[in-house]
Structure formats: C-alpha cells, structure tokens
Amino acid sequence: MKKLFLVITALIVTVAAHAQVESHVRWSYVAKKTSATEATVFLKASVDNGWHIYSQNVKDGGPVKTTFTFTPSKDYMAIGKTIEPKPISKFEKVFGMNVGYFENSVIFQQKFKLKSAKAKTVAGKLEFMTCNDQKCLPPDEVTFSVPLG
C-alpha cells in the first residue's frame, strides 16, 4: 500500500512539473533619464502571432484592460497617466462592444519625476488579458522592477 501511494505521488509530481501555463505575451522594460529630475519608463509587450492584449481604455463590461500600478516611493512620482499608442478598434461579439487592442508588440510609456538622487529603480505590477479569435486566457499579473540607469 505504501509503494502504491509513493507511485501515485511520484506520478502527480511528474505531471505537475510538465504542466505549463499557457502564455503568449513577453514583457520587457527599460528606463531613460530625460533630465536629472525626470525619467521615462518604457514597458513593451511582445505578443505571439494571432493573439492580442487590450488597451488601458476598455469600457466596463468588456475584457480586462491592461493596467499599470507603480509602487509608491519617496524617491519618485508618476507624472500623468501611462501613454499608449492608438489601438486597433474592433467590435467583439462576445463583449457586445467595440474594444481597443494591440497585436504583435506595443510600447507603453510612463513619465516620472525623480524626487531623490537615490532613485535607482521604478517598481510595480501590470495586469493584462490575452485573447485570440477563439479564446481568452485568464488575466495575468506581472511584477517588474526597472533600473533607472
């Protein structure tokens, strides 16, 4: 009985180790100091062919919009809202509305006022939802830290 339990446990562990979360978006980050007291953070989504992520400006009742939350710090402060390029707009039957989305790649930008020379990184998290023409994956949340070098 003990051997059977060990075999079943080993199988479960093996199957769990081989299971992979489906992901079709890779995020990369870079910051550029524009002066001694300002910087811009660039957040790039590289999206697999046939998939897309949604704009930050999706209306209520639609898909999960892309959102950025920057960790509060005494060393920096976000200036204004996160900027995005003009999205593709399309009526999606499943949501019953026009939605804005991005394919292939998109770069979001956020300006920061640097309140201290000690400001070395900007940290935060982002949430997004990935869909193709047949299905949507559950929303995903990613934490990030961007060096201000």
Rank of each mutant, 00 (worst) to 15 (best):
2 K>C: 07
2 K>P: 00
3 K>Y: 12
5 F>A: 06
7 V>Y: 02
8 I>V: 15
13 V>H: 00
14 T>H: 00
16 A>V: 15
16 A>F: 15
17 A>H: 04
20 Q>R: 09
20 Q>D: 06
21 V>S: 10
22 E>V: 12
22 E>C: 05
23 S>A: 15
24 H>Y: 14
27 W>R: 11
27 W>G: 00
27 W>C: 10
28 S>M: 02
29 Y>R: 11
30 V>S: 13
30 V>R: 15
30 V>K: 14
30 V>W: 12
31 A>N: 03
32 K>D: 02
33 K>Q: 10
38 E>Q: 12
46 S>E: 15
48 D>Q: 07
50 G>V: 13
51 W>E: 09
52 H>A: 05
52 H>Q: 11
54 Y>N: 00
54 Y>E: 02
57 N>K: 14
57 N>D: 13
58 V>M: 11
63 P>S: 11
64 V>C: 01
71 T>I: 07
74 K>E: 08
80 G>C: 09
82 T>C: 13
85 P>F: 04
89 S>W: 11
91 F>L: 06
91 F>N: 02
95 F>R: 04
95 F>W: 11
98 N>Y: 03
99 V>L: 08
100 G>F: 02
102 F>V: 02
103 E>T: 14
106 V>D: 04
106 V>Q: 01
110 Q>E: 13
111 K>T: 03
111 K>H: 03
116 S>V: 14
117 A>G: 15
117 A>Y: 13
119 A>C: 10
120 K>N: 10
121 T>W: 08
122 V>L: 10
129 M>A: 15
132 N>E: 06
133 D>M: 14
136 C>Q: 02
138 P>D: 12
139 P>T: 04
143 T>A: 01
144 F>M: 09
145 S>C: 04
145 S>D: 04
147 P>N: 08
147 P>C: 10
148 L>I: 11
148 L>Y: 06
149 G>E: 06
